[in-house]
Design a protein around this nucleic acid. Structure first.
Lengths: 145, 145
DNA sequence: TATTGTTATACTCTATAACTATA
DNA sequence: TATAGTTATAGAGTATAACAATA
C-alpha cells in the first residue's frame, strides 16, 4: 500500500518537473522569436556546433529522418546552413554558414544569460540540480507493478 | 561577454531538464497504456480529485476550452466521468464516476511507485529537487538582453 | 455585453511508407 | 540486402472562429 502522502509528493514533483521544463522551453521559444527564427530551426542550429550527417542529426534529435529534410531545406533557405557531400556519396552533412554560426552564438549567449535554470539558481544550486537530474535521466525504467 | 563554460553548462542543464521531464512523461504514458486508457484521458483524470467546471479545467490544463469538450466526451464514453449541472445554468461540472475514481487511484498509485522522480531519488534528494524546481518555476521571466 | 460550452474547421508537428541512389 | 536521403501523405494534438445559451 502506498500512502497518500507519497502520492501527493509524486504528483507535486511531477508537476514541478514538467513546469520547470516548460519554463525553459518557453524561454527558448521567446529567444528564437526575438532572433526571428522558427523554434525548430533554432533547435537544429544548437545541434550544429559541428557539421553532422543528416541521419545522425535525426538520431540526436530523436526524430525521423523524414522530419529533418524540410528543416534542412529551411535552414538553407534562410542562408543559415548548407548541405555538403558527406564521407560517401549517399550521405550528406549539414553545416552552418558563417551567418548560421553567428546565429548559433547569439542563441547560446541568450540562453546562457536568460534560461530560468541559469537565472533562478546560483552555481552551487545548479551543480546539485545537475546531479539530481542526471540520476533521474540515467535511472533504469521500473518494472510494471 | 559570457564564457563558453557558462554556455556549455546552460546547454547541459537544459538538456538534462528536458530529458528528466521526458522520462517522467514517457513513464506516465506507459502507465496509461497498461491501464488501457489514452494518455490525454489519464491527464484529465489526474485533475479530477474534485469535480471541476469545464472552463476551469481548461485553465488548469493550460489549453483551450474547445479541446476539453472531446476529452469530456471520451471520459463519459468510457464510463469514467460525467458532466453534471454546475452552479449556474450555463456551466457544467465534470466529475469522476466510481469507476473513474478507482482508475484515478490506480493511476496515482502507479505513478507514486514508478515515476523516475520517485524511484531514482531518496526522500532527502526529492526535497532538495523540489526546492530547486520551485525556484525555477517561480522565477520571474528575464528581460530580453 | 461577457461568459460557458459546443461545433466546425484549420493548423502545427511529426511519423509512416514508398521511392531513388548508393553501399 | 541494408542504408541515406527525399517525397507524398497521413495522423495526432491542439487552437481559432463562429455560434447558442445564459449571465
Amino acid at each position: 500500500m502506498i500512502s497518500s502522502a507519497t502520492i501527493d509528493e509524486a504528483r507535486r514533483l511531477a508537476q514541478l518537473l514538467l513546469g520547470a521544463a516548460q519554463r525553459a522551453q518557453s524561454e527558448f521559444a521567446v529567444i528564437a522569436a526575438e532572433l526571428t527564427i522558427p523554434v525548430a530551426i533554432a533547435r537544429v542550429i544548437c545541434q550544429l556546433s559541428e557539421p553532422i550527417a543528416l541521419h545522425q542529426l535525426a538520431a540526436t534529435m530523436a526524430c525521423d529522418k523524414s522530419y529533418i529534410t524540410p528543416l534542412a531545406d529551411q535552414l538553407e533557405a534562410l542562408g543559415l546552413g548548407i548541405r555538403l557531400p558527406g564521407p560517401n556519396r549517399r550521405s550528406k552533412v549539414l553545416q552552418l554558414t558563417a551567418q548560421g554560426e553567428a546565429m548559433r552564438m547569439r542563441l547560446e549567449a541568450h540562453i546562457a544569460a536568460r534560461s530560468p535554470v541559469m537565472t533562478a539558481l546560483n552555481e552551487h544550486e545548479r551543480d546539485i540540480l545537475s546531479d539530481l537530474l542526471a540520476k533521474i535521466v540515467g535511472h533504469e525504467a521500473n518494472q510494471p507493478a
